[in-house]
Amino acid sequence: MSSSFKHKTLNRTFITVIYLFLLVLVIPWYWPENDARQFYGFPLWALASLGVLFLTSVFTAMLCLQNAESACEKVG
């Protein structure tokens, strides 16, 4: 197993774990159901969810702006 293959697999695993972590937090299951507290008109649970979603956007943008993969990749 080449070191570049290992690195790529580790990289993909890391990305998947981060996305799963964000997915768990972006769905506000952990917030009390009857909480109607607000901040500037937004319910707090909605702000928490939007905050995690914004982090997801930042993470996605960072991944997109990483150096392009090799142009000689094979199909599959």
Partner: peptide, 27 residues
């Protein structure tokens, strides 16, 4: 006016389910 007044108006109209966290089925 600001969104906070709009959400207050919704709360006063007893539409609290539209402000609260989605229930488990909706999640």
């Amino acid at each position: 006016g600001p969104l906070s007044i709009a959400t207050e108006t919704i709360a006063q109209a007893s539409d609290l389910d539209k402000l609260e966290r989605p229930n488990s089925s909706m999640l």
